[in-house]
Nucleic acid binder design. Sequence first.
DNA 1: CGGGCAGCCATTGATAGTAT
DNA 2: ATACTATCAATGGCTGCCCG
Length: 398
Amino acid sequence: MSMPESNCAGNLPAPTTVVSLCVSTSPQARAKRKIAALVEEVENLKQEKAIKQRKTTYYVSQGRALRRMVVLYCPLEDLVAENDRRCKDSDGDHTIEQNCLQRGYIELSKTLPWFHEKLASLDFEESEDMLKQLKRGADSARGDDTGTLKELVASWVNIECRPPSFLRADDKHHRGFVNDACGKLLCPAEWCWEDPVVRAGIRDRTTAFIVSENSWPMFMYENYEADAKNLERGLFKSKLLVMGFKAIFTSPSSANEVDGDGDGIDIIENHRRARRRSDHAKVKTCVASIIGMRKVTPRAIAYAACQIRFALSNITSWRTVDGDFDYQLFWNNIVDFFEDPPGPAALARVNKLLEWWTRKVFGRNHRQDLTPDVILHISVNSLASQRQQMEDAAFDSN
DNA sequence: CGGGCAGCCATTGATAGTAT
DNA sequence: ATACTATCAATGGCTGCCCG
């Protein structure tokens, strides 16, 4: 920065000749002034940049929770539109997809309690802008998670499965079904990856062995083993899944503490520390406390599962579809598994599973419901699924 | 007080879409 | 067919916190 000036000074005539050369040095003087002006301009630009950078908008940072807690791909506009539609004609039948959207809107309102009212106070253009910023935050958080899991999952697979050739942390090309370790984890639970016919069939994508979102991949099962006669046994209890979840929602390093039935104590400690401080904004805690997640939710599990599935695959950038496997539908399947169980018995099992998760992630002494659920001013149509369950219960008792 | 860890953000690089 | 644009994911840097 100071180089041009010093060069210039070096070129100036000796002091004794200054007076006599005054007129003839004017080009140099002009050049010097110009340089000074340019330097000043650079300084100004620097300052401007210093002011400009790190302008963090509220909406973008709030949006970071959305992919993790609410919806994986679905545009927020769709959720809003569905709620608007329901407010207009409150009675009437709703399709399964519409119910799903509405549940999403309710989740959205729970995750961002200010959202519903804020939206009502904005005109169309403002709300459009807000949604855009929320989406920006949402997608960037998803990208961050993908980035961290890319490396972490590789190291976990190396440790857990001990593949003959280790997965590289920075490269995804050798993952997916080409790789035996990844293939085993991605393999649908109904099939046996050890069977060479299955293996070849999946790799060649023969019609008999299409891998779609409609079967649960092996990596989601406890010990990565599934019982073909009871596919629910051990489902969602895999170490890999819990580790991925913890890496995203508590912290990457805390994921390594998932072992046996021991539960994380660090989170409670974190919370205690966080509470000790008076200004909450400054305290860096884990994502879970930042976004106010006090218990494990189905959508969060679905998010983690998709992230891990993606990390195991060999596709290098986010796409909704990988071969015959659609992440959006896969995510829906997981959410439906939890949110829309076929009957009371299944509901009880699901709740038990969620409790298991919460204990696993947050620890045994963690208090879940410090804050009551948000009271919604919207047409609450989770009733639909409740009614279905009551229906099923009545049917079962007959 | 410095190194390591987490989370966030601006920038960059790639790609898909569109207009000419 | 080409150039331009917008969008999106990946990357690397920055900041604040914790702990030895």
